[in-house]
Design a protein around this nucleic acid. Sequence first.
RNA 1: UGGGGCGUCGCCAAGUGGCAAGGCAGCGGGUUUUGAUCCCGCCAUUCGGAGGUUCGAAUCCUCCCGCCCCAGCCA
Length: 552
Amino acid sequence: MSAERRSNFLRTQIQADLEAGRVRELVTRFPPEPNGFLHIGHAKSITVNFGLAEQFGGQCHLRFDDTNPEKESQEFIDSIQEDVGWLGYQWAGEVRYASSYFEQLYQWALYLIDEGLAYVCDLSAEEAREYRGTLTLPGRDSPFRDRGAPENRDLFERMRQGQFADGEKVLRAKIDMASSNMNLRDPILYRIRHAAHHQTGSEWPIYPTYDFAHGQEDAIEGITHSICTLEFEDHRPLYDWFIAQLPVPNRPRQIEFARLNTSYTITSKRKLKQLVDEGAVTGWDDPRMPTIAGLRRRGYPAAAIRHFCEEVGTSRSDGTVDVAMLESAVRDHLNQHAPRAMCVMSPLRLTLTNLAEPLALTVPNHPANPEFGSRELMMGSELYIDQADFREEANKHFKRLVLGKRVRLRGGLVIEAESCEKDADDNVIRVLARCVTSVPGTDPEDGVKPKGVIQWVSVAHALPATIRCYDRLFAVPEPGREEDALAALNPQSLKVVEGAMVEPGLSEAEQEQVFQFEREGYFVADRYDHTAERPVFNMTIGLRDTWSASHG
RNA sequence: UGGGGCGUCGCCAAGUGGCAAGGCAGCGGGUUUUGAUCCCGCCAUUCGGAGGUUCGAAUCCUCCCGCCCCAGCCA
């Protein structure tokens, strides 16, 4: 993790709380509801919570906020744990579940009833909405608001026993129906749901709401700073109200920060699901998806994602970070950590007319870091180069191979194109060239140095590979504003290259290993589809390109 | 138009009364067997606006403007 951490309001506040002795040790938590896959926005929350604990020598819990069984499942519990672990974090202790506190929460609900601070309400959902009032008009008291504690207790116990149908009754806090904060207009604490829960089975027919559960969960676990996103700010008075009224063992404190938004990205669960359901992507872990699983399959390193989150900073102002910043973090990490290799995307046959014997080359795996070692590459007289790297004629800006001109073969000799062969459609199908140097790494004796370098693969040793080239999923900066998520899709987000040729050593690439294919970009051996016999690479991100955009 | 927040460079973001960090993007130049990397330089006389307090204001006060959130038995 980065050595110097920029200050932000969370770090400042926690530092102050620690110094003032208000808390002895920092305890945070990452509390997802297991109702979907984690995405880049969650990564931000994860790095904030785990990062804070790490910085201040505290601990961070992983807690599933599983208070709404109908939307949740074990599948998500598993994927979330995998994603958090992959991001590089280990939660303190066992995984926790809000559902394991259901009995305690129930007892606290009874406590509130006995204190005259909660009541069972028989209003239907629609009626309750009417009674609640509007943003500008106060609400009205429920006709059930003044039931006595004994009656409320009896009713609530019967709710717990499953004697009422879904929606028939709810338990509400008795606060203030005229509050300007809607959350304080007698919020619902429990609703009846005769639904199986992935953790507690059919044990409970009633489930606590987020508002009644979250702060108490925090208190039970000894969370000192309950960090959440800005939209919960209006809930804080309620959070504090429960903590003040209940005999909880600790007094956690809620602090909100602005959630992360990135350009060219959507994080709406509903819209992401639409992409999956309608086949716009291959699944939740499609390399174009903003999910952690997708980013991972795309080859984005966890360390780069963490660094990106740190670079973005944490504040309370809404905004949208340019996704180029994420891409920059990925390139920066991969430039330092990815070994180099050669790949020819669109093979064009190149014959070296004067190379008598195949040449054994020793090529470094990284241009700047000797620790990456080197590899042996055989260069025979028959090679593949990229079609884009040859032109019969070109202006001086074209630094690749041109008839009569020279270019250096990466890690090998300097060659000069002599002629080319074409098919009936006038496409160049073969280039003939002669070597103008005989020793790798040297310049031509006549002093005419090549202007450029191109990658190549030896025909005799080439390994055919499938390369999946990805681009941004969306063509517009703010696809989230589009009602129909599919309308903003970038039609060019995936191009599958079947006939690519890679150097032979790549047969040993391990799944999820990332390489830089020189002059092309970073590519990861697909986590599932890549095999030694049938190599499959996903383009993680292209190299920064300051040339092709301005030239063609 | 009730309440709660937020407004510092194109995008993030530090700054908490003492004279506007940094990153990304962009633009110049250098090095280079990746048109990559790396290196050097440029990029806010000004902090949403207008007043005010002060020797001094992005930081304090007043008013105004803009944007976001809240009326689920979702989280």
